[in-house]
Write a protein that binds this DNA or RNA. Structure first.
Lengths: 302, 302
DNA sequence: CGGCCTTATGCTACATCTGAGCAAAAGCCG
DNA sequence: CGGCTTTTGCTCAGATGTAGCATAAGGCCG
């Protein structure tokens, strides 16, 4: 039994902090993720991904982790051969601009995921979701449950890492159009967010979900920061990724008691207030013990 | 730029509890995981996996989750086309025996992962690992660190979900031969464990790692239990999966306070002591909130 | 220069969670 | 019935997490 011949494609969600905004590397218009086929010369899928990103954007990747593989029939195929797509999440620092391609603020792509300060968009979406849930389908109860859980409403806590579930719910309820091909005008205005090519925005949502989950149990934030940083910068970074604010004092305590960082001795006077000490990540902790990442002290709740 | 033509293969790690032993579904000798190519008729990778497992073993799967995708050059190819393998983790209950294929106790395949009672094997392996680490390579420090962390030695805590890391470390240090092709006799006796076809044992290790991690934050254990069960059976199941013992009283407290289960009213007198109440999983919790799975109360440490 | 604003940093009171153990309950068995 | 087993209930101290208050140390402005 020999299988169908297919082609394997690599898709990369490459994330960096650009001027304080978590951003994703995109190419062209409509924006698309760096991608490329698997070639005989590639040693492994991961190596292939590295190669393509480098070739298309001129950027070297540090951290790289596999996300998900899909090959649904309904994906827009590249002709004869069924494409099977392997997606990766990469972390880097913006470095010497510009390469090819550009950084796209991911909250421009998934605006409702930023709950740090303004939740008016979410509130607007919520009212539409409730209407969707209550429409006469025979699934009112299930739908209300689902809306409540995924969007942290109705007594449920907001869970930062349910990015994909939220995206899919918005999609199902017609608030987010997926492919540029189809266009449901009225809804499209409700859940703004820049579109991307094909289902790339869904892949991005997968990457964001993974990243948010991961910062909680592995110290990956530091891949996105410059070698030295203040605790405030670290916190801003975590908040930007998680999309929500955290309690400052408790955050620093967590960092310190885990001994994730060490002082450099320098201070940064650009704070607008008392100067802040600069720190660097203690890479050794990666060896010393399997560290527990940046736990989020829960926070000023909504 | 059109990519290399490849074939996609599905690989399934199907787990069930068989007579109290966590077991994996295998075919043939040497045992191999159920597998099959992606065909044009398959809607999705997940659907393809379901189909193949059903066809090859006559078993329906419940829970099914994607594990990892690999396409390394050094994998034993199926001829012309480079195979790219997508692995899945499936959970089920043994049900009406026998289908085709059989259940293989996974601790027969990865014996050092069972630390519930006897740790003599681990101790034996440890002494060899230390020797390996201390051999004159210039990497003594790094190697000692790595051995300590992955095997919970030298002050580090044993982490159940580092299954893959342990397997790879044993492999690197020559204690576990990978493919039946190569054979390093002396070592093979040290880390016993039944072999499997090709790199299937590595895939199994990946599955076990994922499962152990997952029971901690999602209530998946119940997929492996019969509809009603005693708390002791639940605990045995969790212990078998995690490969270590837990504190009984604290375990029940966790289960109860999370309201994961409800009494059926029946009791089970076969306990050898005081009869135990039977419970059933409250499926509703999956809706009510995104529940936090079966946290392991840490335990009688080694 | 002194008061005021801002952010950084230190610390404390309080709630909750965890780990560990004691002890009673409720079957069986001889 | 006493002894054995496992289930079940409960306590208690230490660790961890949450939420504030308070102070330190800069810049800015009158």
């Amino acid at each position: 039994m020999s299988g169908q011949a297919v082609t394997a494609e690599l898709l990369a969600v490459v994330v960096a902090m650009v001027d304080g905004h978590p951003s994703v590397l995109t190419l062209g218009e409509p924006p698309r993720l760096p991608a490329g086929p698997l070639l005989p010369s590639h040693r492994s899928l991961q190596a292939a991904t590295r190669t393509w990103v480098e070739e298309q954007t001129g950027r070297r990747l540090g951290y790289l982790e596999q996300l998900y593989t899909f090959a649904d029939l309904d994906r827009e195929g590249a002709g004869e051969l069924r494409p099977i797509s392997v997606s990766y999440l990469g972390l880097t620092t913006p470095g010497e601009e510009p390469g090819i391609g550009g950084w796209h603020d991911w909250y421009a792509l998934l605006p409702w995921e930023d709950t740090r300060t303004d939740t008016s968009l979410l509130d607007a979406l919520a009212s539409h979701l409730w209407r969707w849930a209550d429409s006469d389908t025979g699934f009112e109860v299930e739908r209300r449950q689902r809306v409540g859980i995924t969007f942290g409403l109705d007594g449920h806590a907001w869970q930062p890492d349910l990015v994909l579930q939220r995206y899919e719910l918005l999609y199902e309820s017609g608030l987010v159009p997926e492919s540029p091909a189809e266009s449901r005008r009225p809804a499209a205005e409700l859940a703004p967010g820049d579109r991307m090519l094909g289902d790339h925005r869904r892949v991005l949502a997968t990457g964001l979900a993974r990243l948010r989950a991961k910062i909680g149990y592995r110290p990956v934030v530091f891949e996105l920061l410059s070698p030295t940083f203040t605790l405030r910068q670290l916190q801003d970074c975590v908040e930007a990724l998680a999309g929500r604010a955290v309690h400052t004092q408790n955050f620093r305590r967590l960092i310190e008691q885990q001994a994730l960082v060490e002082e450099t001795g320098e201070v940064d006077a650009d704070t607008g207030g008392r100067p802040a000490r600069r720190y660097r990540f203690r890479r050794q902790v990666l060896q010393e013990r399997s560290v527990a990442g940046t736990k989020l002290p829960t926070t000023r709740s909504r």
